[in-house]
Design a protein around this nucleic acid. Structure first.
Length: 179
DNA sequence: TACTCGATCGGA
DNA sequence: CCGATCGAGTAA
């Protein structure tokens, strides 16, 4: 079983639920030589709207965050620490900024490693999550029991303050990453 | 235009 | 524990 996930799925106003649901789905990349590589998603984080002080959209609409204000189903890729490309999937309806950070896939733990491993960079920013862009999500029928998905606070966002830093919006397939 | 600080990682 | 490395956001 293999099915590209339709963009509408990511337009639901449920970033946290979508972040959890993405665990067990596959991130699929088509390389320049035409070959495709699919890796199961093992770790994600949800960033939820302008109120969420950990979310880039806390600053409102800017050149960088504009992509998050579009309808879900497109990629938001940005450079972090001047070194690492971070891959996010924009989620939620139009004018409601939210995204899910892909923090880990099979064989690559950590957001910077995910992008490096799959040759993902800012050229994919604002691109649709479909086969035409060369990077998309598939549901290959893997069933992940709810109890196998752990929820923890998000990583590296202490600047957001104790309330937002404590939100359990990071999801990890049990045993696939450190807590 | 100047300055600050990262949704991280690898090496000491 | 620390340095790398650069662009977005903010203040001026």
């Amino acid at each position: 079983m293999k099915a590209t996930v339709a963009p509408e799925v990511f337009q639901q106003k449920k970033p946290v639920a979508l972040a959890r649901w993405l665990i067990g789905r596959h991130l699929v990349r088509r390389l320049t030589d035409g070959a495709t590589e699919a890796r199961m998603i093992l770790e994600t984080e949800a960033y939820v709207g302008e109120r969420d002080l950990a979310c880039h959209a806390r600053a409102g609409r800017t050149a960088r965050t504009e992509v998050m204000y579009g309808a879900g189903g497109v990629w938001y890729v940005y450079l972090c620490y001047g070194i690492h490309e971070m891959l996010n999937l924009v989620v939620g309806p139009r004018d409601w900024p939210a995204a899910v950070l892909i923090r880990g896939v099979e064989g690559a733990s950590g957001p910077g490693r995910v992008t490096k491993t799959l040759a993902i960079d800012r050229s994919l920013n604002r691109a649709a999550a479909d086969e035409a862009s060369g990077l998309w999500i598939e549901d290959r029928g893997v069933r992940v029991p709810r109890g196998k998905i752990l929820a923890t606070p998000r990583i590296g966002i202490d600047y957001a303050g104790p309330v937002w830093a404590a939100k359990p919006w990071r999801f990890v397939l049990a045993g696939s990453a450190r807590l």
